[in-house]
Design a protein around this nucleic acid. Sequence first.
DNA 1: ATCCTGGTTTGATGCAGCGCAAACGCGGGA
DNA 2: TCCCGCGTTTGCGCTGCATCAAACCAGGAT
Lengths: 235, 235
Amino acid sequence: MLTKLDPALIRDLPPFSGMTLDQMTTLLAKATPLRADKGSHIFDMGAEARSFFLLLDGYIRVVRTTPNGEQVIARYIASGELFGIAEALGMKQYPASAVAAVDCVALSWPSDIWHATAAAYPAFATNTYKTIGGRLQDAQDRLVEMATERVEQRVASAILNLVERSGRQTDDGILIDFPISRQDISEMTGTTLHTVSRLMSGWENDGLVKSGRQKITVIGSEALSLIANKEGSSQ
Amino acid sequence: MLTKLDPALIRDLPPFSGMTLDQMTTLLAKATPLRADKGSHIFDMGAEARSFFLLLDGYIRVVRTTPNGEQVIARYIASGELFGIAEALGMKQYPASAVAAVDCVALSWPSDIWHATAAAYPAFATNTYKTIGGRLQDAQDRLVEMATERVEQRVASAILNLVERSGRQTDDGILIDFPISRQDISEMTGTTLHTVSRLMSGWENDGLVKSGRQKITVIGSEALSLIANKEGSSQ
DNA sequence: ATCCTGGTTTGATGCAGCGCAAACGCGGGA
DNA sequence: TCCCGCGTTTGCGCTGCATCAAACCAGGAT
């Protein structure tokens, strides 16, 4: 598993694009490998941001918890992505929790080498900031979506998003390749698991998806995408 | 007005903290002053991000427009803040439009000097990334709020936010010191101007706010804050 | 003084989606 | 094999808010 630590094997990951093999080798030498069992918390919201991470294998759920104990899923991290990069934005604490959605393998670096690292490897810094840019954009897209679209469309586009980013082709259709519940989807879209369940039952009847316990396979992504983009009733 | 260009006068703005007067002088030498009349667009969503900006005076509304023509207000920029810093995140286009909420004065720099500038003045880069971090955090906070809180609470906290960031003490109470309509508030909170109007009429009756045409004065900020944080019906 | 325009208020009505409740089914552990 | 627990499904009543519609009001232009 940790043979992945061979720089040649991960040199193609987006966070490292533009770096030389030598640079990567020195950077990787500073990393600590990390194994996280399904369900375990890699870090918790509000904790001091001691490390930043690169996910090598698995999926991570980034979650915010409200004062009232409700949860909102900010995003999923797929393998090859950086996460926990609070330090790059001058934050002292993690703004959200990272929970392993499946068994995961990651690398971690101490936060305090961030500045020196960024200075030494500008390409790495640039890549990181691009990642952050993408996430900011994404957050604002979702904000707009929450403000203007109704539940059905939000759920449809959440599923499409997951499929795009983490879909695996099977003979049935495209499978979201980590366990995901109705509850999870409701926490991504700001609704209740009941509503998600109802919607998906409907789609299952229409043959758009096929789903089981924590398992979703999309068959008619075009049709789903129609739903995601269809006008609400008026304006 | 543009006497403000004197570095000594703006050296205390957060984006420049940690820089020497000399550094600021060279940086300011590369800036172009800019005047934007109320209502004018400084840049539009989707346009090529040729410049980044520092607002010296006024207020800017950062707006996203949906495919259906609806608008969502992403945030307000107050004087002393940077905006349009897409280049720092490797974005080619502005992700939102910037509209002058009042007559504004700003400085602009060409985007392509960003990287050299960030390299030459690390403090400036750090400050900028902190700003971005704050905005990412803010976007995600609002996302959580949209997902979990009901309209009344969202409107209350939006108003409190505006008051905190742009409030001016008057004999009546704290005034939001730029023109802001019910419609604007609805576009910040994902509701309709009707609902905002109803809510605010109620608060006006209760003596929590006093408001006129595009003018809002908050009297009972503690009470408002209670509303903003009160539990929804259940859980 | 009068009109016009853009913002605001208020009423009436309908429905999407939530809260609550109960039952179901699959998969894993004993 | 049976049981238990967690995820899921489904029904029902209720309500928060959107939608539609109309009137109102203040300030600037003529």
